[in-house]
């Protein structure tokens, strides 16, 4: 299956500056599998969202899902 991925909040340093990409994932892949696949260290990520809403790490992805990956944020 294919999922769209967006990388936020400085995590692009782990993806050679790429902020948006498409990934082919195996059926049964979870939201956190995307983080692992991109090689972003575990403690650098706050959470992954699907369709703009935070999901648990083990959330099962569907074809054409859009996954957003966020770093922890403080103030603004």
């Amino acid at each position: 299956m294919t999922v769209g991925v967006r990388i936020f909040g400085g995590l692009q340093r782990f993806t050679r500056g790429v902020a948006e990409l498409t990934l082919d994932m195996n059926p049964g892949a979870t939201a956190w599998d995307v983080v692992i696949r991109l090689g972003i260290p575990d403690n650098e990520v706050w959470f992954a969202a699907v369709g703009g809403v935070r999901v648990p790490r083990e959330h099962l992805l569907k074809d054409h899902d859009r996954v957003d990956i966020f770093a922890p944020v403080g103030g603004g």
Partner: peptide
């Protein structure tokens, strides 16, 4: 890097996705 690219506006999407 994120502050330089987007300033504080960067956190709109993260905070929304977190609720």
């Amino acid at each position: 890097a994120s502050l330089h690219e987007h300033g504080t506006t960067a956190i709109v999407m993260a905070l929304n996705a977190a609720g």
